[in-house]
């Protein structure tokens, strides 16, 4: 799995951080920061959930 983020689309909702704080963080403006682009299999479900819950659809999962 590879996670891709689109910072230009991000609206800073923080859904991803609340869902998987080991994979995502927010910068001072609230914009998404990717902490781990290729998580272990144990975190794949959390990564998918983060992408599905992003209101700006700024997270893409490549599997």
């Amino acid at each position: 799995m590879k996670i891709e983020i689109d910072a230009a689309a991000c609206v800073g909702a923080g859904q991803c951080v609340l869902t998987a704080e080991d994979l995502f963080d927010q910068d001072d403006d609230g914009i998404v920061l990717l902490l781990n682009a290729e998580p272990d299999e144990s975190r794949h479900a959390a990564a998918r959930r983060s992408a599905a819950l992003c209101p700006a659809r700024a997270i893409t999962i490549h599997e």
């Binding site: 800073g12 609340l18 927010q26 609230g30």
Partner: peptide, 12 residues
Amino acid sequence: SNMSRDFRRARP
């Protein structure tokens, strides 16, 4: 208004 991180921290 802005302050996204503090906003997120208040959500739980």
